[in-house]
Amino acid sequence: MTTKGEFSLRRVVVALDAAADFAAAIEMAASIAIAWSASLRALFVEDESLWRLASLPYAQQVNAITALRDTVDEAELGAQLKLLARRARTDLARIAEGHSLSWTLERFRAAIGPDALSLGNDELLVISAKSRSSANALRLGSPWRRVLDQVSQPFLLVPERPTPRGPVAVLCDAASGGLDVLDASARIARAGKRPLIVLTPEDLTQSQLDAAEDLVRSVDDHATVIRVPAGSHQALEKVVASARATLLVMSRDRLVGDKASAPDLISPSSALLVL
């Protein structure tokens, strides 16, 4: 049955790199950290593969904007990475200004993977789903996406065009969702003065449904409850879109397939928080 409790969050970790467009990710990570009074740790990882590429003779890249080729060298790469890291720092400082947000930015060289994150308990991983520049059109996403099925911590996938307002939708059921998911969603909704929409799968039994509704009333009297087809990402996506929800919250065990497919759940303006 339902696990009564509260979703706790000590630190938000936002994973940054040269390939992802991180401004929106930083903003959302900061807003969650502020809502939970958690600290924010930004990791700007200089992908080892990039440095290896730059060290190769005659290394070239196809410019994503011009579709023309140019050379890649270590000096140029270093300068660009430094610039991106500085931009991340500026964004963090700007957002933190006026809030009691404790934040750090670490810049280091490593292979992108779970080891680079060294996530602890009560930490939330935030990554961007959007690639930099027009490489985005190729749906490459962030390189961090591949670590999603390797970490056990909750994560937030920030969409291409995040919207800080709009309803928060939560996929909830009494059997497995637990109070944590619902409580976290209600907390995010309250912090942003956003409506809460609770999506209950159709495969719930009546008693489970009653229990789920009791849970909903315990966190938000005004929440809207909508039943959704069970087990279909496509159906879920439609419901989220028609409700104009800009954040979908769900428990890890409600994910269908591996976590790398999670971005398919979200529209360009809807974020996904998996707890």
């Binding site: 390939a19 590429l53 890249q61 196809v62 410019n63 994503a64 790469l77 930099r132």
Partner: peptide, 8 residues
């Protein structure tokens, strides 16, 4: 490999 400016 995705570089800051493109694809390599």
């Amino acid at each position: 490999i995705r570089t800051p400016m493109g694809i390599a």
